[in-house]
């Protein structure tokens, strides 16, 4: 499936190295438009502008967690369909269940490979395309 490589992506992680890794991997996959946020609390006002087509977020951040950010996105009538991928070290069964219930589109556990990221993005946007057709 052909994915729009021009989409605006927001990368949210409190570790700047991880943001760089994610951005570089996304660049290798052909994406080019990124913004960064270092916490859910700084990401949320950016997302509310409606600019982003895809959100890639960490879970564990100091002020607002990724799961809380996901809940806010899903609770907002304008933003609720924004594809949301969690990339996190959180790997407890109960946490993955919680993320699923909150409406996450993909869940990657750290450390991860470029291949995993590519696979998840493909899957997410295939599902988005199916949803739009339905």
């Amino acid at each position: 499936m052909q994915i729009n490589r021009d989409m605006n992506i927001l990368v949210v992680d409190d570790f700047s190295t991880m943001r760089r890794i994610v951005k570089n991997l996304l660049k290798e996959l052909g994406f080019s438009k990124f913004d960064e946020a270092d916490d859910g609390s700084t990401a949320w006002p950016m997302i509310q502008t409606g600019k982003y087509d895809f959100i890639v977020s960490d879970w564990n951040m100091p002020e607002m967690t990724g799961i809380e950010l996901l809940r806010r996105v899903r609770a907002d009538a304008q933003l609720k369909d924004t594809p949301f991928l969690l990339i996190t070290a959180e790997a407890k069964r109960s946490q993955i269940l919680e993320a699923a219930q909150a409406g996450v589109d993909g869940y990657i556990v750290k450390p991860f490979t470029a291949a995993t990221l590519n696979e998840k993005i493909q899957k997410i946007f295939e599902r988005v395309a199916q949803r739009q057709q339905a």
């Binding site: 564990n60 996190t88 070290a89 959180e90 790997a91 407890k92 069964r93 109960s94 750290k110």
Partner: peptide, 15 residues
């Protein structure tokens, strides 16, 4: 969030 499950105790219930 509890971070990476790197201890024996924390690996319980972790995938």
């Amino acid at each position: 969030g509890v971070g990476p499950n790197v201890t024996q105790a924390s690996r319980q219930d972790a995938l």
